[in-house]
Simulated assay, not measured.
Amino acid sequence: MAAADYGEVKFFGAGGSPFAARVQIALNLKEIQYQHFEENIFNKSELLLKYNPVHKKVPVLVHNEKPLAESLVILEYIDETWKNYPLLPQDSYQRASARFWSKFVDDKCLPALWKAAWTVDEKEREKAVEESIEALQFLENELNDKKFFGGETIGLVDIAANYIAFWLPVIQEVVGLKLLSSEKFPKLYVWGQEFINHPVVKENLPPKERLFGFFKARYESITASK
């Protein structure tokens, strides 16, 4: 069922951003018509700075000239405004739980994974690897035997965790880490494959080769400066 028309929607994103991809996936799952503005994060447009003067970054959603920033905030707004393909459960406890795990991904999981990949100091990296493994184990346990965190369909937590499904395996390959694997986290690994191969998700992810090249250049720059 296509989404109802609630006016003009603009989306400001950048192809390599997992946070922008969250919003784009949600918009397309709900079949919302929108105008897409592709931003260069190194040369931001005046429009982006106008609509997000606080953080000056993507993603930004502008609905009937009312701007919203921060991907999780935008996802909840989209879900409340367009009721088709719900991203959050109807049950109040399950809704609160989905919000908790989405915040867990942003506050605990992503910072640890980023540090584990890019921190130069060995002791700090070891600590970040430990924190990453602990965080991934929590997600593995929460997923349990469900196809998606949202059950049989993609929901808020799945979209929030898109970095783990797509970006993390690319970074692992570049830097020689092996945090997420079918041996260590079998359920989370299978979930990641299901998620990135969903037709809507797949068409809203950046080309893997381009992402690999970007992170390879970053890694070579970091290692050269050691």
Rank of each mutant, 00 (worst) to 15 (best):
A98W: 09
R210D: 01
D91E: 13
K127N: 13
L188V: 08
E194H: 15
W101Q: 06
D106S: 08
A96H: 07
L168F: 14
R95S: 02
N197H: 15
G155F: 11
L139N: 03
T153C: 03
R125I: 04
K184R: 13
I164W: 05
T153S: 09
P186K: 11
D91A: 11
L139C: 06
S92Q: 10
T153V: 08
D91M: 10
Q94M: 12
A161V: 14
E183D: 11
V105L: 06
P89T: 11
E140H: 10
V129S: 00
F100C: 02
E131F: 09
K178F: 09
I164F: 11
K127C: 12
S132Y: 04
S102W: 08
S97I: 03
N141L: 13
D91C: 10
I164A: 05
W191H: 13
L177T: 15
I133R: 09
F166C: 01
A116W: 00
A116G: 04
A161N: 11
C109Y: 06
E122A: 15
F138M: 05
A161W: 11
H198W: 10
E194G: 00
L156I: 13
Y93G: 02
V174N: 02
P186M: 12
L88D: 00
K187Y: 11
P186A: 13
I159N: 07
F166G: 01
I171R: 05
N84R: 06
E140N: 07
L188E: 01
Y93H: 10
F138G: 00
R95G: 00
R125S: 03
E142H: 15
L177F: 14
C109Q: 04
G155M: 05
K115E: 03
F195Y: 15
D145T: 12
V157S: 06
N197L: 08
V120H: 14
E142D: 07
A116C: 03
L110P: 00
F212V: 04
L113C: 08
V105W: 07
Y163P: 00
K123G: 08
A98M: 06
K108C: 03
F212T: 05
P206V: 14
F212N: 00
D107H: 13
A160W: 12
N204D: 06
A117T: 12
I164H: 06
E140S: 07
A160S: 15
Y189I: 02
W118E: 01
L179I: 09
R95F: 07
N197M: 07
G150I: 14
P207S: 11
N141C: 08
V129C: 01
T119Q: 02
N204G: 07
Y163N: 04
K127H: 13
P86N: 07
N144L: 04
E134K: 14
K178I: 02
N197A: 10
E209I: 11
V201K: 06
L180K: 05
E131A: 14
R95D: 00
D107K: 09
L179E: 02
F104W: 12
Y189V: 02
P89F: 13
K83H: 08
L88S: 03
D121C: 09
P169T: 13
I164D: 01
V200W: 09
K184I: 06
R125T: 05
N162A: 06
G176V: 10
P111M: 09
Y85G: 00
D121N: 15
I164K: 03
E126G: 14
L211K: 05
E152N: 15
I164R: 04
V120Q: 14
